[in-house]
Amino acid sequence: MPELSMVQALNAALRHCLAAHDRTLVFGQDVGRLGGVFRVTDGLQHEFGERRVFDTPLAESGIVGVAVGLAMAGWRPVPEIQFDGFSFPALDQMLTNLAKYRGRSRGAYDMPVTLRLPSYGGIGGPEHHSESPESIYAHTAGLKVVTPSCAQEAFNLLVAAIRDPDPVIFMEPKSRYWAKEEVALEPAGLPIGRACVVRAGSDATLVAWGPMVHRCLQVASAAEEDGVSLGVLDLRCLVPLDEATLLTSVAETGRAVVVHEAPRTAGFAAEVSARLMEGAFGSLKAPVQRVTGWDVPYPSGAVEQQYIPSVDRILLAVQRVLDY
């Protein structure tokens, strides 16, 4: 198996889908000759031509709006919005149309649109380049929200998202873009909507997605040195949420810490926590803890490591659930 970065694995997934299905289209800002600002679309225009891989004007609402129309015409659009914060100019098309068109047309039109969104912080980016808007999209019925944590998952989930008949907001963790691992480039064939236990543990369960999965694995390694066994659950998909795996994993340990980069208030950890209350209350030995970004606008790059949940902050939360 080749050792690939997440960027290369995503590129391989796009190449696979463009080759396998000739209705697949890749478009957005700088995705053509440049190959994307992160090079995720590197070489695709050269290989598949300007008809199927093309640059667009700098207009995010336009990118998503034409994706809706292209889907109506029977195409399978995979648009890229260059950075998380720039999905906000497209928010109306995403929430008002992309999410609702199947319903508005009473099922006459599929919306097999996979909107790729380089997301989250950790790369010292300027303002608007480090947002974590997953709860906005998870709160919008009609959208699916998928977010890989590593290169292999990125390949599998992007192929699955593009094959899916519904609109998928595909949030790629920029801070993990360059982490390499061996990647099997055979589509796993799994539907989206399955969580993954990435590390088994018996004392408490860390629940995370996207970039915070790696952070939680660091926490679990550190805790192991102190004789504490932490499991790590990678949700992978926030919508649909694999509630069965979530409840089972947490019931096994009776203690849960949910971790995300997004601000705390109304973040997706609140939803996870509520599901655990509703579905695993009898198994809980301690109140569910959240470790999240602070309730502030994403700060300037120089201080972002004081914003993003650190190993120490997560360990403190683990201590709270263990001591309860």
Binding site: S61, G65, V66, G69, A73
Partner: peptide, 11 residues
Amino acid sequence: HLLHAVGWAMG
């Protein structure tokens, strides 16, 4: 919906 028409026409 102007954008949907444009996308459909592009398609």
